[in-house]
């Protein structure tokens, strides 16, 4: 039986999705620049609690670095420390 082709069975669609996503990411950084520019010239009100929020792309880079560190620490520090065989508790 020939199975129905699904959305992501076609690698082209995956590539398209990735391309859209990367475009969004870059777009957000551009938007952030525009936003800070407008805020600097008092076109829109910008309220920041902390100094670093006034830097371009603070949240973007923080999110990225945070997640990479999260994964690297989980993989290289936590997993070697805590991983045991599946039947560890059954022995």
């Amino acid at each position: 039986m020939e199975e129905k082709k699904h959305l992501f069975d076609d690698p082209k669609n995956v590539k398209r999705l990735l391309a859209v996503f990367f475009a969004c990411v870059v777009g957000l950084l551009v938007l952030n620049g525009v936003y800070l520019y407008l805020a600097k010239h008092h076109v829109i009100h910008h309220h920041a609690y902390y100094e670093w929020e006034n830097f371009w792309g603070f949240y973007s880079f923080y999110g990225f670095v945070a997640c990479v560190i999260l994964v690297l620490v989980s993989k290289y520090v936590l997993r070697p420390l805590v991983k045991r065989r599946e039947d560890y508790y059954d022995q």
Partner: peptide
């Protein structure tokens, strides 16, 4: 990203 984060955090007084 790491270098830029370090730069930002160093240049913002708490």
């Amino acid at each position: 990203a790491c270098l830029y984060m370090a730069f930002i955090l160093c240049h913002s007084p708490l």
